[in-house]
Amino acid sequence: MQLINIGFGNMVSSARVIAIVSPESAPIKRIIQEAKDKGTLIDATYGRRTRAVLIMDSDHVVLSAVAPETVGGRAAVDEEDDDNV
């Protein structure tokens, strides 16, 4: 199982991530609010500004203070490491 660092020592399974998106648009804000209402929101920002939203296959929504490009880049590096083993 490969883990992606989403900031502050928090990690998620790369196999469970469906999408990594920016929190700016209204539909994403709606997804965040719905997850909060359902109790499936995981806030890993440590009080900082949300810069990336990870949508998981388990219907959980994870908030990260790391930029989406950075999280995606870390996921790509993990996949490269798998290919080299």
Rank of each mutant, 00 (worst) to 15 (best):
M1Q: 14
M1V: 01
L3H: 13
L3N: 09
I4N: 07
I4K: 05
I4R: 07
N5H: 04
I6E: 01
I6A: 06
I6K: 04
G7C: 09
G7R: 08
G7N: 10
G7T: 03
G7Q: 10
F8L: 09
F8W: 09
G9A: 02
N10F: 08
N10A: 00
M11G: 04
M11E: 05
M11D: 01
V12I: 08
A15V: 00
R16K: 13
R16S: 11
R16C: 05
R16M: 10
V17Q: 09
V17N: 05
V17D: 10
A19D: 06
A19N: 08
I20G: 01
I20V: 12
S22M: 03
S22T: 09
P23T: 04
P23I: 01
P23F: 02
P27T: 01
I28E: 06
R30N: 10
R30P: 02
R30A: 12
I31V: 12
I32F: 04
I32Q: 02
Q33A: 12
Q33R: 14
Q33V: 00
E34Q: 13
A35R: 11
K36A: 09
K36H: 05
D37K: 10
K38N: 05
G39S: 01
G39C: 02
T40I: 00
T40R: 14
L41I: 03
L41M: 11
I42Y: 15
D43T: 02
D43P: 02
A44I: 01
T45E: 13
Y46I: 07
Y46T: 07
R48E: 15
R48F: 08
R49V: 13
T50M: 14
T50P: 14
R51T: 00
R51G: 07
R51C: 08
R51S: 08
V53N: 15
V53W: 13
V53K: 13
V53A: 14
V53Q: 15
L54R: 15
I55T: 15
I55K: 15
D57L: 03
S58L: 06
D59A: 09
H60I: 00
H60N: 15
H60F: 13
H60E: 13
H60C: 03
V61Y: 11
V61H: 07
V61A: 12
V61K: 13
V62Y: 14
V62I: 15
L63E: 10
L63R: 11
L63K: 12
S64D: 09
A65T: 07
A65P: 11
A67D: 09
A67M: 10
P68L: 06
P68K: 11
P68E: 06
P68G: 07
P68R: 04
E69I: 08
E69R: 04
T70G: 06
V71K: 05
G72W: 03
G73C: 01
R74W: 02
A75D: 05
A75M: 13
A75H: 13
A76M: 05
A76R: 08
A76E: 09
D78R: 14
E79Q: 08
E80Q: 06
E80D: 08
E80T: 01
D82P: 00
D82N: 08
D82F: 09
D83N: 12
D83H: 03
N84A: 02
V85Q: 08
V85W: 08
V85D: 10
